[in-house]
Design a protein around this nucleic acid. Structure first.
Length: 624
RNA sequence: CGGGGUGUGGCGCAGCUUGGUCAGCGCGCAUGCUUUGGGAGCAUGAGGUCGGCGGUUCAAAUCCGCCCACCCCGACCA
């Protein structure tokens, strides 16, 4: 089995082997729960999973509140139940899947030199004050008081706690690098939980934190995690891609997100197939090649009675929306700022936050318009707008032939040219790329696709170590802050993502690596003595091999058993039915392909062993 | 937080407009018999004070008010 890692400062902690597998080869034997050999005195070594005695409440109908496949199927198939909005119970099969995913994560984390710890969910306010995030995190952090009235937060993430742990116990360069991780419950009081496990309030997360002497070390730690993440998602059966990402509340400079492409994903990423540039749409750049040009005509006023929206005005004037200047009024730290973007684009507020250097801003609301009556909602334009700072999207640099509000009721201006008629205080990248926009690196057209963020890695640098005084002594006795990184995987979200990528209309199709069982034995007409005995024998034999097997020993009709088996999605199915009566053969079905074969008992085992063997090879190579 | 919607046995729903044998249907559950290769049939049965509180009325699942929960869209979050 895999080493659980050593104490701080041990070989396991120091033995960095970027990109490789530090430590010993991982034990893939008994992937379905089985120890191999040496089970003397015990006839059964696999877990006993008789369906009649296992808590798998399947539903014939979809629950009314489930919209997406993963949510619907996980509930219908008896893996999951909701107890409150965004809060779920994992039933035995769901728990199995979580454990299997967790196991893959542990193997890869341990192999990459990280050590597992367990950190508290409930964390004292004081730590969060140190990092400044008690104020900054906002209502998303669940807060509570103990009986003495002391403030605590339920950890939405664990940088503070881990930094506190390390600063108090690590003080020498000899103990670095150090990488600690946990798999634990996180709580985030999401504004709007939805999509089952994809956006839950309480969820399981693997989070790791690395501590290094310098930036170079941090980069190596980052690289090791990045590569481990790729292996983890691949082994869980996901297609994925890593993209450049924004850092948000966690902070730091460099970050990548691991995205699992899926229609239902809430994130969007821009991809270039020519040069492999890929980034979250929040920060993906694109080249401005569509900048409209003018013909040197003089600016002109036109009457646009009652027309406030881009659609209304552009339709009335017969101009393309991209020639309209959308002038958005923002209140930035209490001051009005005009943000100019082409009429056919939206402002990207993540980019805007970067440019403004603050996230204290919002689009004008009703009362803001009232308080600033000199800005006429629907007719604001950059020409003659002296009272506000004006920042414009890059695509408006040198643009001409534009139309915009005249800062006068029911009037717009046409033939407007940037540079001649108005001049923004600055230009910046303020809009999101769309499919077809040119790649910022190579200029080829990109595409935008939806994905589920299943993991994110950050180079934190000194953000927390300086704020929280997490220092060490180097060889010369100098006191230096540690360079940190942090690395998260949404374990339960990953489970949902796997289902999103692996299901059909009838149910889940688990990849072998994370399936709650390897084989599902269905004995049809279980009452028939011969079939029952055959099923029991097969079951026992599988258990002795250490396989995880689910035996459908219920006295249900064939249709019910098949339908439930499709729903549960266990990769292989052995059916004992008519074929068995006729010539003693069993039918092996593969859930993913639907392939069926009537086999003798010996051949059935041979085929299953082959499947396990080829899977094991894939796993060793990191292809699975 | 804004907008919309829903809350009726374990699950999915009807009933509400036009208060009064409306507490009902399907699935599930229990018992018995017959069934068993794609969600079986017959029979019998258990189970809901209709989200909560208050009001109107002779009478409220149904009308009114407040509250709560859940869902969707948006805002938010990363």
């Amino acid at each position: 089995m895999v080493s659980q890692g050593g104490a701080p400062g041990s070989t396991a902690a120091r033995g960095r082997q970027v990109g490789g597998r530090a430590g010993q080869g991982r034990g893939y034997a008994g992937r379905w729960g089985g120890r191999k050999g040496n089970g003397k005195g015990r006839t059964r070594r696999g877990r006993d999973m008789r369906q009649s005695r296992t808590f798998i409440p399947t539903l014939r109908e979809s629950p009314a509140d489930a919209e997406i496949a993963s949510h619907r199927l996980l509930v219908r198939a008896g893996y999951l139940r909701k107890v409150a909005s965004g809060i779920y119970e994992f039933l035995p099969l769901g728990t199995r899947v979580v454990q299997r995913i967790s196991r893959i994560i542990r193997e890869e984390m341990n192999a990459a030199g990280a050590q597992e710890v367990m950190l508290p969910i409930m964390q004292p306010r004081e730590l969060w004050e140190e990092s400044g995030r008690w104020a900054k995190y906002g209502p998303e952090m669940m807060r509570l008081k103990d009986r003495a009235g002391r403030d605590f937060g339920l950890g939405p993430t664990h940088e503070e706690v881990i930094t506190d742990l390390v600063r108090n116990n690590v003080s020498s360069y000899r103990d670095l690098p150090l990488n600690l991780y946990q798999i634990g419950t996180k709580f985030r009081d999401e504004v709007r939980p939805r999509f089952g496990l994809l956006r839950a309030r309480e969820f399981l997360m693997k989070d790791a934190y690395s501590f290094d002497r310098d930036e170079e070390g941090m980069r190596l730690s980052y690289k090791a995690m990045y590569e481990a993440y790729g292996r983890i998602f691949t082994r869980c059966g996901c297609t994925w891609r890593a993209v450049e990402a924004a850092t948000g509340l966690i902070g730091g400079d460099i970050s990548h997100e691991f995205m699992v492409p899926a229609e239902v994903g809430e994130d969007h990423i821009a991809l270039c197939d020519s040069c492999s540039y890929s980034a979250n749409l929040e920060l993906a750049g694109y080249r401005r090649t569509e900048t409209p040009r003018g013909e040197g005509k003089a600016m002109e006023r036109v009457s646009t009675p009652g027309m406030r929206t881009i659609e209304e005005v552009s339709g009335y004037l017969g101009m393309e929306p991209r020639r309209m200047v959308k002038c958005l009024m923002y209140l930035v730290e209490g001051k009005p700022v005009a943000v100019l973007v082409p009429g056919d684009r939206e402002a990207n507020e993540v980019k805007l936050a970067r440019v403004l250097g603050t996230d204290e801003f919002r689009l004008f609301n009703e009362s803001d318009w009232k308080e600033h009556p000199d800005y006429l909602q629907g007719f604001v334009g950059p020409v003659g707008l002296d009272s506000a700072e004006i920042i414009a999207d890059e695509s408006l640099r040198g643009a001409g032939g534009l139309a915009c509000g005249a800062n006068e009721r029911d009037v717009h201006l046409v033939h407007v040219e940037e540079g001649r008629d108005f001049r923004p205080h600055s230009f910046a990248d303020l809009t999101s790329a769309r499919t077809g926009d040119p790649c910022p690196r190579c200029g080829e057209p990109m595409r935008v696709e939806a994905g589920i963020e299943v993991g994110q890695v950050f180079q934190l640098g000194l953000k927390y170590s300086e704020a929280m005084r997490c220092y060490y002594h180097d060889e010369n006795g100098e006191v230096r802050p540690m360079y940190m990184g942090c690395y998260g995987i949404g374990v339960t979200r990953l489970m949902a993502a796997v289902v999103e990528q692996h299901h059909d209309e009838r149910g889940i199709i688990w990849p072998l690596s994370v399936a709650p069982a390897f084989l599902h034995i269905l004995a049809l007409d279980y009452q028939r003595e011969g079939r029952r005995k055959a099923a029991e024998d097969l079951y026992r034999e599988c258990l002795e091999k250490g396989w995880e097997v689910l035996l459908d020993d219920r006295e249900e009709s064939a249709g019910v058993k098949f339908a439930d088996a499709d729903l549960l999605g266990i990769p292989f199915r052995a059916v004992i039915g008519r074929g068995y009566d006729e010539d003693g053969t069993l039918e092996l079905q593969e859930r993913a392909t639907g392939q069926r074969a009537r086999l003798t008992r010996e051949n059935l085992f041979r085929r299953l062993e082959e499947a396990r063997e080829s899977f094991r090879d894939l796993a060793e190579r990191g292809d699975m």
